[in-house]
Design a protein around this nucleic acid. Sequence first.
DNA 1: CTCGAACTACGACGAATTTCGTACAATGGG
DNA 2: CCCATTGTACGAAATTCGTCGTAGTTCGAG
Lengths: 116, 116
Amino acid sequence: MTTAASPRELAHPTRDEIRLEGVLHALSDPVRLRVVRELATAESELSCSYFDLPVTKSTSTHHFRVLRESGVIRQVYRGTAKMNGVRRDDLDELFPGLLDSVLTAAAGEAARHGAG
Amino acid sequence: MTTAASPRELAHPTRDEIRLEGVLHALSDPVRLRVVRELATAESELSCSYFDLPVTKSTSTHHFRVLRESGVIRQVYRGTAKMNGVRRDDLDELFPGLLDSVLTAAAGEAARHGAG
DNA sequence: CTCGAACTACGACGAATTTCGTACAATGGG
DNA sequence: CCCATTGTACGAAATTCGTCGTAGTTCGAG
């Protein structure tokens, strides 16, 4: 009773559907901020399973979805894996400097408190 | 030095107690983001009653407190009024460029969708 | 001292969020 | 076809969030 369509396409907001409040909210969670930092540092797509997050798989799926639906990341299936990448072009066009300042701020805070 | 010997002093986080996640969360609410935008454009401090927010006084108090406790704004009593100002120095030192890029992003989004 | 203005404290409520466990589906290799 | 890998869906519980109303506090003016 498998239904007809291939469901392996993921819904993303278009560029003009991305909202600042949604992006800020997505980035205000420690787990999600950490994912975005790794993704941005890697500068290439990473699978969900690449991340060793302190939450279960269910919760991990949830966080990735929040990031995708807010427009922060793009997700694409590749075999059984789901690859993730930051939507840098869209974010930089929409909110110039925002992503970089958040990443810089996160790095600074990590240096101050995480390794201080 | 401050001449305030008033018993009504408000608790603020010190600079190094301010957390990025807390700031992002505080700014991810439409009402609070609007307050910060007005505060940032204003030349001087503004009282709570200056703002005509689409919420009750109770809720307004709540939002101002979230902003204060996250370190985004500084609040000082002046008579019966409570004056509010953005903690620009602290935020710029802690998270360079972050506040400005958020304000620019908010202005851009308002131009795009609010008055586009 | 009394009054109004400004703001707070407290309790409450519904809605959203976060988290988990378990069961399930899609893919690619034997 | 079988199965391990990868991630999803669903339900549920705990928590947080945004909102409000009411009662109360502090201050300045009269």
